[in-house]
Design a protein around this nucleic acid. Structure first.
Lengths: 212, 212
DNA sequence: GCGTAACCCTACGCACGAGTAGGTATGCTC
DNA sequence: GAGCATACCTACTCGTGCGTAGGGTTACGC
């Protein structure tokens, strides 16, 4: 007869999720480097070696966080923007889903994301995700273009898509820093800038630099 | 007669610039945390205590880098976008100056900038700079609006400005990662998205979410 | 009921890098 | 050429936090 342990033995899958929850929380609050594995372990209600046993080193743990949250976000967007809708409708729904997700995870995703931009080890992971987003947006624009019998070079298409994704990311940052702001209203504003701009381009209106 | 020292005695102002040059280089390559003061000192051709004596702690050094580079950038933009020009001309010149600057400092500014977004201690410094930019852009749009006898809420104005600045920042990131890309061409593309979009808004065209 | 695998812990080693103590050489002023 | 400020160095201290060694306990199959 030993004293009843204060902790519960839980299956691996459950603990892993708890650890990831804790890691997202701590990484967000402190930043990648200032976060300590001890704090993450404590927050998860577990001891440090368990974290190493299940999720590996600190870097691997961070990538795991990024991956889980990123996948969730992509699913939220993909689920909202059905591919058979017209382009503007898809863009609108995608934006709404995106800002809705960020709004619901202000302290989680957005901050994790900011971290990842800086540290080289994670830039790749992030670039992959962004590339997927850009591809989706570019595909959307291209589809709308072809429907009008128009063409545009692949690079131009990519850059426009990149600008739109970038603008959205920045507004997401802004949203994360403004707890009082409404995600849907932010999405509307983004749609205004993005669609009216992209819409003009789609109709063949282009801006040209003044001569000289 | 002592052996001639390998180093030269230089006035403080000169050494400080050398140190900042080295710091920008090392911070960019390694990231804030992975960069060591030893490496920065070595790269500057000086010993560590000199860095501490002149520029202070690691954080202070980083802020000094950010400040110098940021000031240079703001000057480049301000010098290009004279306030008496029409709004579209100002925006175009500002964008050209901005992307020109980033293109000329690909490894310096852009990476430094990315670092600062993540680490809390520097977020403030960065936010200040961004706020100045947003203010300038918002003022530009507001001016153009009033010239047409139109009005818009301050928040909407700020968010649109924020989106434009954000999109530009993202394209700057893209530019930094694509050594072959042409800064002016990138500025043109940004102008297309920004101005056609903003231009529509300025003419009273707005996008509204579908009902339901 | 008994072996074995899965969970889980306490306690440490150890490297790394920020920041400092204390001292030396050089040039400038009068 | 004595005095003084400035430029500069070598060689440490010391905290912090990643990652691990080694061992205990509970559940589950058979």
């Amino acid at each position: 007869m030993s004293t009843a342990p204060a902790f519960k033995r839980l299956p691996r899958a459950v603990r892993e999720q708890q650890m990831l929850d804790a890691a997202v929380k701590v990484f967000s609050r402190r930043g990648f480097h200032a976060a300590s594995m001890d704090e993450i372990a404590e927050d998860a209600g577990i001891s440090k070696p368990m974290v190493y046993a299940y999720l590996g080193t600190k870097e691997e743990l961070f990538v795991a966080c990024l991956h889980r949250e990123g996948t969730r976000m992509m699913q939220a967007i993909a689920g909202a923007a059905a591919p058979d809708l017209p382009a503007d409708e898809r863009l609108w729904r995608g934006l709404k889903a995106f800002f809705g997700f960020v709004g619901a995870h202000r302290d989680g995703w957005a901050v994790l994301y900011r971290q990842a931009r800086g540290e080289q080890p994670f830039a790749g992971e992030l670039a992959t995700m962004r590339a997927r987003l850009v591809e989706v947006v570019a595909g959307m624009l291209d589809h709308a273009l072809r429907a009008e019998g128009r063409e545009i070079t692949a690079v131009d298409l990519e850059v426009v898509a990149y600008a739109l994704v970038g603008a959205s990311e920045s507004l997401a940052d802004w949203l994360a820093d403004h707890p009082e702001a409404d995600p849907e209203k932010t999405a509307t504003r983004m749609m205004n800038v993005a669609w009216l701009g992209a819409g003009q381009l789609l109709h063949g209106v282009t801006w040209r630099p003044p001569a000289g």
